[in-house]
Amino acid sequence: MSALLEARGLSAGYGQAHVLHGVDLTIEPGQVVVVLGANGAGKTTLMRSLAGLLPYDGELRVDGETVGAVRPDQMVARGVSLVPQGRGTLTALSVTDNLRTGAVGRRDASGVQEDIDRWFTTFPRLAERRHQVAGTLSGGEQQMLAIARALMSRPRLLLCDEISLGLAPVIVQGLFETIRGINEEMGTALLLVEQNAALAMGIASYVYLLEVGRVVQSGAAESFAQSDSIRRVYLGY
């Protein structure tokens, strides 16, 4: 039985600037994992590498199979979908077209339509704006759209990069309830990168702590939340 996603000695960066230095990380099917770390620790770089947006050194395996080419569409095809930081919706396309685009890899037209209806039920505000161009949505609505769009490919692992960024607390609360529900109902594994550590820890079962591009600590969420230093630095109580 191999892990859903496994990174071994993952290093990545931008040109001469090396950001990640040999990160090891494992995500089991259905697991909720959170990566904590200060600004500049390499969280977004990690997510972008896992999604196939950034070239990396080291090994990345999905279902025990080594990923060859660094290409986002192949990661999507393997069931790994990223909600990028800053939403990454297709702003010139309508809400419905955004969702349809999320499902380009799928061949089951009726299933796609079912899923669109399903996310419209989950996010009624998107349903109201289904013909609107995505660029005209509010920040919260765009984030909902970004999540729904990523889910349209029916991923087994959803990578969420700072989905709370710049959103009102009440909206963030709602989004987290939604993704927790998705995890529970569909068994979609989640990898969360969050500034809002308390919220993320609330739904996570496993935690990685990233400092200047290295994993300095990892463990089950409960044991993490009890560690005094972690609490002080990341949870703020």
């Binding site: 196939g52 947006l53 569409d73 990028p84 297709l90 702003t91 685009t101 380009v104 769009r149």
Partner: peptide, 24 residues
Amino acid sequence: TGLGLQMRAVATNPESASLCGIKV
């Protein structure tokens, strides 16, 4: 068409389009 949808997505933002699984 589906091809057109993909072309419009790439025109909007190639990176986001690739994250949707489009072979940009």
